[in-house]
Amino acid sequence: MTGFRPRGRRSVYTAAATAFTTGALALLATAMTAPQPPPTPPASARTAPTAHSTVPQLPSAGLPRSEPAVISIPKIGLHTPVEKVARAGDGSIALPKDPDHAGWYTGSVTPGERGNAITVGHVDSEKGPAAFYGLGALRKGFPLTVTRHDGSTARFTVTGIEVWAKNAFPSQRVYGPTNTATLTLITCTGWDSTRRTYRSNLVITAQLTPS
């Protein structure tokens, strides 16, 4: 090989890899297809723990009870089956066993019913993007639908995007019952590259669209 090739970080990386060959080589194949970090929620979503909801709660009859089957958000290419989840030992909502599924918390109302229907999902697995990978790209006004086991479709509009630090999470605000048919979607955000964990939760709220 001859001639000028731009040298810089690329060479550095190569060298670093060489210095730690065995494992690096083993993982090279995976790394070559490594996915990009998830989309970032808007800056306005970064909240202070003291912030308080001022959204008026208007009466809403909502839909009859029916468990959710699929959540679809066409604008971000999200189409994911929903499985049931309960509380984990620490009191938090357990995540779905399948990272490509969303989880509906069975202690909450069903999506479309009056009240706060709570869903959770992984932003990524150990291998790559998971069910709620794209939630950071949601913006207020985006439509989303939940198809339900009774064959009906509950249509929602995104009304809230909030990011809360895990260590200052306002549980009552996020999980509290609502007088309107509300859908809450929660996933992780705020990657901490030092601790190699997500520091925050992204909390999306949506209201049932009058039909």
Binding site: P35, D90, G91, S92, I93, L95, P99, V120, G121, H122, V123, D124, S125, E126, K127, G128, P129, A130, F132, W164, K166, F169, S171, I186, T187, C188, T189, W191, R196, T197, Y198, S200, N201
Partner: peptide, 9 residues
């Protein structure tokens, strides 16, 4: 509390 919805992949 918050949910643990990401593995970092």
């Amino acid at each position: 509390g918050a949910v643990a919805g990401g593995m970092g992949g």
